[in-house]
Protein backbone atom coordinates (compact mmCIF):
# COMPACT_ATOMS: atom_id res chain seq x y z
CA UNK A 1 0.00 0.00 0.00
CA UNK A 2 1.26 3.44 -0.89
CA UNK A 3 1.70 6.06 1.82
CA UNK A 4 -0.58 8.40 -0.15
CA UNK A 5 -3.40 5.87 0.20
CA UNK A 6 -2.90 5.81 3.97
CA UNK A 7 -2.92 9.60 4.11
CA UNK A 8 -6.21 9.65 2.28
CA UNK A 9 -7.95 6.88 4.25
CA UNK A 10 -6.89 8.14 7.68
CA UNK A 11 -7.21 11.82 6.75
CA UNK A 12 -3.65 12.49 7.88
CA UNK A 13 -2.20 15.95 7.76
CA UNK A 14 0.99 15.87 5.65
CA UNK A 15 3.52 18.13 7.36
CA UNK A 16 6.70 17.30 5.45
CA UNK A 17 8.16 15.62 2.36
CA UNK A 18 5.04 15.59 0.19
CA UNK A 19 7.12 14.07 -2.63
CA UNK A 20 7.64 10.97 -0.51
CA UNK A 21 4.03 9.81 -0.48
CA UNK A 22 4.49 7.38 -3.35
CA UNK A 23 6.60 5.07 -1.16
CA UNK A 24 5.26 1.56 -0.63
CA UNK A 25 4.60 0.74 3.05
CA UNK A 26 5.80 -2.69 4.15
CA UNK A 27 4.40 -2.61 7.67
CA UNK A 28 3.87 -0.45 10.72
CA UNK A 29 5.47 -0.13 14.13
CA UNK A 30 4.00 1.51 17.22
CA UNK A 31 6.38 2.71 19.91
CA UNK A 32 7.41 5.75 21.88
CA UNK A 33 10.76 4.28 22.86
CA UNK A 34 13.39 5.25 20.34
CA UNK A 35 15.77 2.37 21.07
CA UNK A 36 12.87 -0.03 20.57
CA UNK A 37 12.18 1.45 17.16
CA UNK A 38 15.85 1.23 16.27
CA UNK A 39 15.97 -2.40 17.36
CA UNK A 40 12.68 -3.67 16.00
CA UNK A 41 11.11 -1.52 13.29
CA UNK A 42 11.57 -2.71 9.73
CA UNK A 43 12.64 -0.89 6.62
CA UNK A 44 9.72 0.95 4.96
CA UNK A 45 7.54 0.56 8.05
CA UNK A 46 5.37 3.51 8.99
CA UNK A 47 6.11 4.56 12.57
CA UNK A 48 3.25 5.54 14.89
CA UNK A 49 4.32 7.59 17.90
CA UNK A 50 3.55 10.50 20.18
CA UNK A 51 7.18 11.63 20.31
CA UNK A 52 7.74 14.91 18.49
CA UNK A 53 11.34 15.91 19.22
CA UNK A 54 14.21 16.17 16.78
CA UNK A 55 15.64 12.68 17.33
CA UNK A 56 12.64 10.96 15.73
CA UNK A 57 13.86 12.24 12.35
CA UNK A 58 17.32 10.76 12.85
CA UNK A 59 15.86 7.41 13.95
CA UNK A 60 13.45 7.28 10.99
CA UNK A 61 16.22 8.20 8.59
CA UNK A 62 18.63 5.67 10.08
CA UNK A 63 16.08 2.85 9.81
CA UNK A 64 14.80 3.82 6.38
CA UNK A 65 11.23 4.13 7.63
CA UNK A 66 8.40 5.10 5.27
CA UNK A 67 7.37 7.99 7.50
CA UNK A 68 6.21 9.02 10.96
CA UNK A 69 2.61 9.39 12.08
CA UNK A 70 2.39 11.63 15.13
CA UNK A 71 -0.81 10.91 17.02
CA UNK A 72 -3.04 12.73 19.49
CA UNK A 73 -2.89 16.16 17.90
CA UNK A 74 0.55 16.84 19.31
CA UNK A 75 2.16 19.93 17.86
CA UNK A 76 5.48 19.49 16.05
CA UNK A 77 8.09 22.21 16.32
CA UNK A 78 9.26 24.05 13.23
CA UNK A 79 12.89 22.91 13.63
CA UNK A 80 11.74 19.26 13.61
CA UNK A 81 9.72 19.82 10.43
CA UNK A 82 12.66 21.57 8.82
CA UNK A 83 14.98 18.69 9.68
CA UNK A 84 12.45 16.14 8.38
CA UNK A 85 12.17 18.02 5.10
CA UNK A 86 15.95 18.03 4.76
CA UNK A 87 16.23 14.33 5.56
CA UNK A 88 13.30 13.47 3.27
CA UNK A 89 11.18 12.01 6.06
CA UNK A 90 7.41 12.31 5.77
CA UNK A 91 5.80 13.55 8.99
CA UNK A 92 2.05 13.04 9.17
CA UNK A 93 -0.16 14.15 12.03
CA UNK A 94 -3.57 13.16 13.26
CA UNK A 95 -5.86 13.94 16.20
CA UNK A 96 -6.60 10.19 16.54
CA UNK A 97 -4.93 8.14 19.28
CA UNK A 98 -2.26 5.52 18.50
CA UNK A 99 -4.62 2.58 19.12
CA UNK A 100 -7.09 3.74 16.51
CA UNK A 101 -4.43 4.60 13.94
CA UNK A 102 -2.67 1.25 14.44
CA UNK A 103 -5.94 -0.66 14.29
CA UNK A 104 -6.94 0.93 11.01
CA UNK A 105 -3.53 0.40 9.44
CA UNK A 106 -3.53 -3.21 10.62
CA UNK A 107 -6.84 -3.78 8.82
CA UNK A 108 -5.51 -2.17 5.67
CA UNK A 109 -2.25 -4.09 5.55
CA UNK A 110 -3.70 -7.47 6.54
Amino acid sequence: MKLSELVEKLALDVKTFKDGLQIEIKGAYVSDLLSDVMANAGKCDIWITLQTHLNIVAVASMKGLAGIIIVGNRPVQEEVLKKAEEEKIAILTTPKPAFEVAGKIYQMLK
Partner: peptide, 15 residues
Protein backbone atom coordinates in the same frame (compact mmCIF):
# COMPACT_ATOMS: atom_id res chain seq x y z
CA UNK B 1 10.15 11.30 28.41
CA UNK B 2 11.96 11.71 25.11
CA UNK B 3 11.77 7.95 24.68
CA UNK B 4 15.45 7.34 25.47
CA UNK B 5 16.76 5.77 28.66
CA UNK B 6 14.65 2.62 28.36
CA UNK B 7 17.59 0.42 29.27
CA UNK B 8 17.99 -0.86 25.73
CA UNK B 9 21.08 1.01 24.59
CA UNK B 10 23.90 -1.24 25.75
CA UNK B 11 21.93 -4.46 25.03
CA UNK B 12 21.20 -3.15 21.51
CA UNK B 13 24.90 -2.45 20.98
CA UNK B 14 25.86 -5.91 22.15
CA UNK B 15 23.18 -7.63 20.08
Amino acid sequence: EMGWGAGMGLPNMKK
